[in-house]
Design a protein around this nucleic acid. Structure first.
Lengths: 192, 192
DNA sequence: CGGGGGATTGAACGATCGTCCAGACGCTCG
DNA sequence: CGAGCGTCTGGACGATCGTTCAATCCCCCG
């Protein structure tokens, strides 16, 4: 049973542990993520990390799966907008300073690097990417109902390429104007 | 003095050591790069690695600097083509299966991840990126002399974004057709 | 030939790694 | 109350890490 003594403002310990993993990963890469560093950052004992996550692989996998939700959430719109405006807003949101933080971008990059180095993490990553593209295609078809499913999927894939490049280039420190132009390019790909 | 006993087909030991670093980095990420693993992969003793590169940071920095040349070389054309054709060829080459290998892409990603985690490696990376973009702008202006220097630089930056996304997406396993479309997009950005 | 210096080796150091485990804590239920 | 159970702690294990170092090798020069 979860504790939930009502007086405690502190988050669930498992949450705190995953937060710590993501924070360390974004800050110093995978080499900065040791079981002890995670425990210290989360403010729990070393033993507890291994208690909740049997080994390091499972710990990192759990942390990675927690980023997925955040990525897909980028596409979730305020539902009361017209479909086209909803799509425009979703495409603009990837460049929103609120989401496009260094920490988030760095996290993304480390996730990709991990996926390239370990098969297990690669699966988590490709699954997330597939879900993201499907959701994007759905938004496009809502805004342009005359498109075939295949056409919408193709446009979603093209947008994904530019967005990946946009994220990556933002991380590497390009100026904001070329990012704005890239967002505009995504809009025109989506809406012709 | 370098040995260079003429009978030996084996490369310089320092070269072999850097090769080993890059191979391990591409294959298993930074966690796979230990001094011992590098020595084993290069077929030399552990001590020699530390003899040529005083510590691990300097070893990796030397390896990263060796990738730069390869990146810039992507833009170097056969000199006997017309400027526009030279540019088209350079832009197409980033998607050439000969360069777009998994090993090379993975290496690039690990480089970016490293740059994000350590200041020292970040400097190496941004320097290389700057040189790449300048060289690309030069090619564009050769093909379109009527463009101002600023316009050419702007186009080079836009192309860099799409190319980064192209590389990244190729690495993440997207289909070849969307890559081809992205190459075409780079061409039209460059030549209007 | 004898010596000097760069190249190369592998053993050894202390630190840190992931994992394991015996036990303590706090809570519920019979 | 006491037995049971999920939660949590920190010490201990062997493995591996980066680094250091004395000793050896090889080759050129005097």
């Amino acid at each position: 049973m979860a504790k939930r003594s009502e007086g405690l403002p502190e988050k669930d310990r498992q949450e705190r542990i995953l937060d710590a993993v993501l924070h360390l990963l974004a800050e110093g890469g995978i080499s900065a993520v040791s079981m002890r560093a995670v425990a210290r950052e989360a403010g729990v004992s070393l033993g507890l990390v291994n208690y909740h996550y049997a080994d390091k692989t499972r710990l990192i996998a759990a942390a990675l799966r927690r980023i997925e939700a955040q990525d897909i959430a980028l596409l979730e719109p305020d539902a009361d907008l017209a479909p086209e405006e909803r799509l425009r807003k979703a495409l603009a949101r990837v460049a929103d300073p609120e989401f496009l933080t260094t920490a988030y971008l760095s996290l993304r990059l480390q996730l990709w690097a991990l996926a390239q180095a370990h098969e297990e993490f690669e699966q988590i990553n490709t699954d997330a990417q597939k879900r993201y593209r499907a959701e994007l295609a759905r938004l496009i078809r809502a805004a342009r109902p005359e498109l075939s499913r295949a056409d919408a999927a193709r446009r979603a894939a093209d947008i994904d390429v530019v967005q990946n490049g946009l994220w990556l280039t933002a991380l590497l420190g390009l100026d904001r104007r070329s990012i704005a132009r890239s967002v505009e390019r995504c809009v025109s790909i989506a809406l012709e």
